[in-house]
């Protein structure tokens, strides 16, 4: 029965080819430092999952954002766990992505033929920081409100186009309901979409070129 089902799927999906190219691929002798990339991916998936859970109760409006988060923390069973994982996961993800990048730098894995993998990786680091920045505003508390005021004002100091950038970020000249809803949109649609797409490219490049070997004295 299972064998038949498998064969049916195999004919149509090519599962064994997929298995060979994705999972059963050869690699240089492994190293614990090489796990940080997958750890970043794991944290991204974790953030995605807990983030989706949070949107079930969260309401992105200045009138309700704060109260809805308090409700998640005290009114919903395991709400504290879901939000706690999301909160700490954000910090941990920035840390792990950064250390991963340092590891790639130290082993010079960004050199031929993996230049593009590095380039995409820089994009991933920036997007991760962008997720941190936009997510910080969503609880709509004193800390997030004022930190975002300053953060967006920094962009406003750019010569010539500063005010334009600041207005584009804030959705107007002040931090308001518009800022909250556009940060929400960026945090749950735009940035994660870009992140997922770039992660796809990053993974494709890793599979294409294989994981880099640790350099020895001759490299």
């Amino acid at each position: 029965m299972w064998r038949k089902l498998y064969q049916w799927l195999e004919e149509r999906l090519g599962l064994s080819d997929l298995y060979k190219s994705l999972l059963d691929r050869p690699e240089p002798k492994g190293n614990w430092w090489n796990t940080l990339g997958s750890a970043s991916l794991f944290l991204f998936l974790m953030q995605g999952l807990t983030g989706i859970f949070l949107t079930v109760y969260y309401t992105p409006s200045p009138d309700h954002a704060y109260d809805s988060i308090q409700y998640i923390m005290t009114g919903v069973r395991f709400g504290w766990l879901i939000r706690g994982i999301h909160h700490w996961g954000a910090s941990l993800m920035v840390l792990v992505v950064f250390i991963h990048m340092l590891r790639v730098f130290v082993t010079a894995s960004y050199k031929y033929p993996r230049e593009l993998t590095w380039l995409v990786g820089v994009g991933l680091l920036l997007l991760t920081l962008g997720m941190g920045f936009t997510g910080y505003l969503l609880p709509w508390n004193q800390k997030s409100y004022w930190a975002t005021t300053v953060g967006t004002a920094i962009a406003g100091t750019a010569p010539f186009i500063g005010e334009f950038i600041m207005k584009a970020l804030r959705g107007g000249s002040d931090l308001s309901a518009l800022t909250l809803s556009r940060f929400f949109a960026a945090h749950i649609w735009i940035l994660p979409g870009l992140l997922a797409a770039l992660i796809g490219v990053h993974l494709y490049l890793i599979i294409k070129h294989g994981e880099s070997a640790f350099p020895d004295k001759d490299d």
Binding site: T50, F53, V76, F78, L81, I82
Partner: peptide, 15 residues
């Protein structure tokens, strides 16, 4: 570990 609390979290109002 994440699935069960997640499910309870989602269905909380009904429970």
């Amino acid at each position: 570990i994440i699935g069960i609390p997640g499910l309870v979290y989602l269905l909380d109002p009904a429970l």
